[in-house]
Design a binder for these strands. Structure first.
Lengths: 239, 239
DNA sequence: CTTATTTGTTAGTTGTGGCTAAGTTATGCG
DNA sequence: CGCATAACTTAGCCACAACTAACAAATAAG
């Protein structure tokens, strides 16, 4: 059992991607499949990391030989216990850093993700701990994503994502924002300007035809009624 | 003139090493050679970076072809204007980070160097700026090394190092600590425990035979007379 | 059930940045 | 000056992590 090959940034990125993808199982639609085994396809990993399929295949085989995933040809991968721990470690780094950058350095929330994306691979355990203490052991990052604990356990809110996407709300319903997808800077800045962040209370006042915009009132926002495209309204989770 | 090949961490480390070595010209002894041309030998670079001579030769050729150094076979290297700028950029990152880690995160001064050593390669311009502003544009790091300015100019105190090493002080002399070499954690912790840091006032009260210890009084230190080995006393610069 | 399409894999290359071993140039000493 | 030694370079190799092109398996459609 060959171990501890000093996980490079690339390896960490793969493990993190596999971890996140395995939580997104039922690919957005509400298919009634039980969350059987969270096996992730090679293509999904490749797409997420923007590398070619061949590169992904290669790396997945390597990760398997390191005991970090179990990989079966043509069948996808699954994290082992060891691989899972590393993924959670990186995720903890990432989300603590996002929080720290926002709180301590005033980095605008739409930019903390990309900064953390490189810093996460380089943060020492000592710095991680100092940051965590300084922030008072936060449990979510600025986008509402749960931060794995010091013991590298994901709070259950992380395993089962929030109930619904804002897009699925009916006219007249109100809810509070729980989480916002962090990957697209553009979207985040826009949502931020509208005052839509974790904790914000919103109310749906109407919707356009089929994929048309969603109209909503944002408490504490710039006032009046705001319109959100389908894409944006799907990237916001409410509860 | 092929340019901007997106300087990797390795490249940055080489440029930084060359920059620092070129300032150390008269290799510690007080040889009367004028600081003619600060050409750095391949071996010196290799030793500093703890890589083989062959690796260094290789990289130096590469740096030359990128226009970052001028390299002449068997004759050493010299930074070009472009290479120099990059070196200063990295140095600014490094020293700002050291200062930030010490001040904002309470990292003990003997450990800030190694943390900064990895973070420096990954710090965005935006974060650099935020840190600089937050610290009030400091001009030296915790070890007393000057921080290059925003415009990437080294303050003159950085080009000509402080007058003397503590080791060179005569019995009875007193002086104030200006700068402490940062590379060896062990030494730094010890000096820190003794209260020897930039700004500290010290007085030489005696010295052992030839390479024997230096005895000194440290103002504000744990009191009494302290002894310093030659090696340590050579790593402290006074003025 | 056969075939077309999508999904994955294999094979072979590339660029970084290290390494060792062996050869070459400079330098220093008798 | 001539040679030993130190300094430096060349040659050839390896691991990592990406790539393209070509091929194989699985799945969907008729």
């Amino acid at each position: 059992m060959r171990m501890r090959q000093s996980t490079s940034p690339a390896i960490q990125d793969y493990l993190k991607a596999i971890y996140k993808l395995s939580l997104e199982d039922g690919d957005a639609g509400e298919s009634a499949v039980p969350p059987s085994r969270p096996s992730v396809s090679t293509t999904a990993v490749a797409a997420r990391l923007r590398v070619s399929g061949a590169s992904a295949t290669n790396m997945l085989k390597r990760l398997d030989s390191m005991g970090l995933v179990t990989y079966t040809r043509y069948r996808g991968v699954e994290l082992t216990e060891a691989g899972s721990k590393i993924a959670l470690e990186v995720l903890r780094h990432h989300r603590l850093l996002e929080t720290y950058l926002a709180e301590a350095l005033g980095v605008p929330w739409e930019r903390v993700h990309e900064e953390a994306e490189v810093l996460e691979h380089v943060l020492s355990e000592d710095l991680e701990e100092r940051i965590a203490v300084l922030l008072g052991d936060p449990t979510t990052d600025p986008h509402g994503h749960p931060i794995p604990t010091r013991e590298l356990e994901m709070p259950e809110s992380g395993v089962a994502p929030p109930a619904r996407r804002m897009w699925e709300l009916a006219e007249g319903e109100s809810a509070s924002v729980e989480r916002v997808s962090d990957e697209t800077t553009e979207a985040l800045r826009y949502l931020g300007d509208l005052g839509i962040r974790p904790g914000t209370r919103i109310e749906i006042v109407g919707r356009g035809p089929v994929s048309g915009p969603l109209f909503l009132k944002v408490s504490g926002g710039p006032g009046d009624v705001q319109a959100l495209s389908k894409e944006l309204a799907e990237s916001v989770w409410v509860g």
